[in-house]
């Protein structure tokens, strides 16, 4: 998918969000919607202008807009966001992005299923083994140390009650 198409998709998603806010605001009283409603309308106006603008410019100028503050070089600022994907010379494929999303999803899934502390152990150990960065013995040591540190810091020192996961009732049953 071209960069322009991706930008248009992102802008369309924003339009949907702002429209959703306007729709939801209809259920609120006048004071509760006093700020969100005009902001959402303003958001729609800005997004429509952005869509028009990005479709009238060349692909190279997509990081700019009609009320740009500084020159094109300024787009490299962290505030404006200079993602890895935007770096010249290193094209990011959707497979890589799906992989990164999968990593985050895997940790989330493990936490929900097994609970916080076992998830840290399983995720870190699994990651080390899959990437083959370290030998299985070194992976086990690093994983054990990290899990112990997390446990000591959060559970013992800070006395935070850990989440035990969806499997906890099953484990307790047996």
């Amino acid at each position: 998918m071209s960069r322009r198409a991706q930008e248009n998709l992102a802008a369309a998603a924003l339009l949907a969000v702002f429209s959703g806010v306007i729709w939801l605001c209809q259920d609120f009283g006048p004071r509760a919607r006093m700020i969100p409603l005009p902001l959402a309308v303003f958001g729609i106006v800005l997004t429509v202008i952005q869509i028009l603008w990005q479709n009238l410019r060349s692909t190279e100028e997509l990081h700019m807009d009609m009320i740009s503050v500084q020159g094109p070089g300024a787009a490299a600022t962290p505030g404006a966001g200079a993602g890895a994907a935007a770096k010249p010379g290193k094209r990011v494929t959707w497979r890589q992005e799906a992989g990164a999303l999968g990593i985050v999803g895997a940790l989330l899934g493990l936490i929900l299923v097994t609970g916080i502390i076992p998830a840290v152990f399983l995720f870190t150990g699994g990651y080390f083994l899959m990437t083959r960065q370290y030998s299985w013995r070194a992976s086990l040591i690093y994983t054990g140390v990290l899990t112990a540190v997390v446990y000591l810091l959060f559970v013992v020192a800070l006395q935070i009650q850990p989440y035990h996961g969806l499997l906890a009732p099953l484990v307790e049953h047996f």
């Binding site: 800005l46 952005q50 009320i67």
Partner: peptide, 11 residues
């Protein structure tokens, strides 16, 4: 923080 893209910064 919107240098280069104030419109997107505002959004």
């Amino acid at each position: 923080f919107s240098q280069g893209s104030l419109m997107k910064g505002l959004i």
